[in-house]
Amino acid sequence: MKFFSLRIAIRSLLIQSMWNYERMQNVGFAFSIKPFINYLYKDKVVQGERIKAHFGFFNTHPYLANLLIGIVMRLEEKYSRGEISSDEVIRTKTMLAGPVAAIGDRLIWSTWRVFCGIVAVSIFLFSGKDNYWFEVNIKLILAIFLFLYNLVHIPLRFFSVYWGYTYSSDVIHKLSKFSIQTKVLSLRKIGILLLLLSALVYSISFEDYVLNIIFWLNIILSILLSKRYAQIIIFYVLFLFNMIILIYK
């Protein structure tokens, strides 16, 4: 099974290659689970029918999709022994996709990726304006960002097929024991602290109190505007605001 998990995890890297508005990740899902279906059923016609059964709507977080693939592999085994119906396999898959996506979006997109970005950006900000405090090592920043992010991403992708297959539908219950919410909140607090601290060190390097005031004014304004407006609107509004202020500086 470990061999299958690895093979399927590699194939799942392409889960969004044919993303479409009608059924979203369906092509990628069918593509990923195909080797297991072929292993389970020897008849070409049955193989095709089962892959077609998995060609319906599917959308979840691309990393945690592997967890669902593992669960579906277990269910597919049960189906092949006649213990459950095909409808049950598909229903479970569709039903779990939502909660798994919510976990993935909150844990990975909304927290881990942002946190890793903040760590990388902070190194740059700590170096100050035009490398005022120290010469920033660009390759080191890239390496830290990619290493830190993929330290979670790659094992998550590769182990979750196996976890899904081993624990089946209980995996969601097991996940809840990890107290994800507490870890997410801790990471967020560290992230805010890191951003504030690096912004402070960066702004000290300006040696110009007017620039310093404008810098912190921008931080406050963008926090306030973030509650209501999209990032691009905030950027353009503050860009023009800064231009006007700088003219009269």
Binding site: S110, V114, G117, I118, V121, L125, K129, R188, K189, G191, I192, L195, L196, A199, Y202, F206, L211, I214, F215, W216, N218, I219, I220, L221, S222, I223, L225, S226, K227, Q231, I234, F235, L238, F239, N242, M243, L246, I247, K249
Partner: peptide
Amino acid sequence: ENFRDIIYILPAIGVGIGIAHFM
């Protein structure tokens, strides 16, 4: 000449967006 400094201010917008996101 004054416009040149804008590049040093721009990271502040993102810092604010990042803080707001984590809050």
